Amino acid sequence: MTMPGLIRSTTCYLGLMTVLTGLVYPLAVTAVAQSAFPRQANGSPVVLDGAVIGSELIGQSFTGPGYFHPRPSAAGADGYDAMASGGSNLGVTSQSANQTITTRLQAVRIPSTRVPIDLVTASGSGLDPHLSPEAALYQAGRVAAARQLRRERVEQLVRDHVEGPTAGLLGAPRVNVLRLNLALDAQTAD
């Protein structure tokens, strides 16, 4: 094969693969996802009174004493910024990371109890919408007092919202903070 022929066939192959992998395949996957799983394909939105208030897949900040607080976020200046997703990239020997964790520990510590690690460390993306059941239960006393609910009732609400591992195999049990706080808002005072 001559050099011009090789260039021509390489260019044709590049064009074909660009169209197949850059256009046809993404459009086919999008069409299948939209028809088979429309809610998930559109970001798993959480709708309340006809308005989208969040996503099951992206954490958001809750700071009031009557709400369960999510994991800290390192995504963006105020946290939970999906455009700035990413961890802090600070390791266990980082002075800055250790100071941040110490400050967070002081803010959430209940005397003579062990603080769950996910209440003081950000997730890898900074957008994790879940907490461990232990981290949610750790906050139950504060939430119950702020809402004037029995602690046992709030703890049962947490247990009712524990999601098992995906497909029974992947991951650990977890609690979606947004869904838990919405269920909490539906409760009435004791």
Rank of each mutant, 00 (worst) to 15 (best):
G87I: 06
T18V: 11
H69I: 10
A31W: 15
A33N: 14
A74K: 09
A28F: 14
G43F: 00
Y25V: 15
H69D: 05
F62H: 03
P38T: 01
A28H: 06
G43Q: 02
Q95H: 12
S85A: 15
P45A: 05
A75M: 07
A82W: 00
F68A: 04
E56Y: 07
D78Q: 13
P65R: 01
A84E: 01
V47F: 00
F37L: 01
S55C: 04
A31L: 15
L14K: 08
V46I: 15
T30L: 14
S9T: 15
S55E: 08
V47I: 04
A77T: 10
T21E: 05
S96H: 10
Y25F: 12
R71G: 07
T11A: 14
I53Y: 08
T30D: 13
G15D: 06
P45L: 05
D78R: 06
P70L: 02
Y13E: 06
V46L: 10
D49E: 11
Q60W: 02
I7D: 05
G59D: 06
V47R: 01
A74I: 03
L57V: 02
I7E: 05
L20V: 09
L16K: 09
S94R: 04
A51L: 13
Q95D: 12
G86A: 07
Q95G: 08
V46K: 11
Y80W: 14
G22P: 00
I7G: 06
F62G: 04
T18F: 13
V46E: 07
Q34G: 08
L20S: 04
A75L: 08
F62R: 04
V32H: 10
G15N: 09
D81A: 01
V52L: 02
V52N: 04
L57N: 01
T93L: 14
V92Y: 13
P38Q: 01
S44I: 00
D81F: 00
V29M: 14
A31R: 14
S61T: 07
P72T: 07
F68G: 02
S44N: 03
R8A: 05
L48F: 09
L23I: 15
L90P: 00
S55V: 04
D49L: 06
G66M: 06
S61C: 06
N42T: 09
A74W: 02
R8Q: 04
A51V: 15
C12A: 15
G59R: 07
G15I: 12
A77H: 08
L23T: 14
G15K: 09
S44M: 01
G87R: 06
M83N: 14
D81H: 02
A33Y: 12
R39M: 00
F62A: 04
T93M: 14
S55M: 05
A75T: 08
S85Y: 08
S35P: 05
F37P: 00
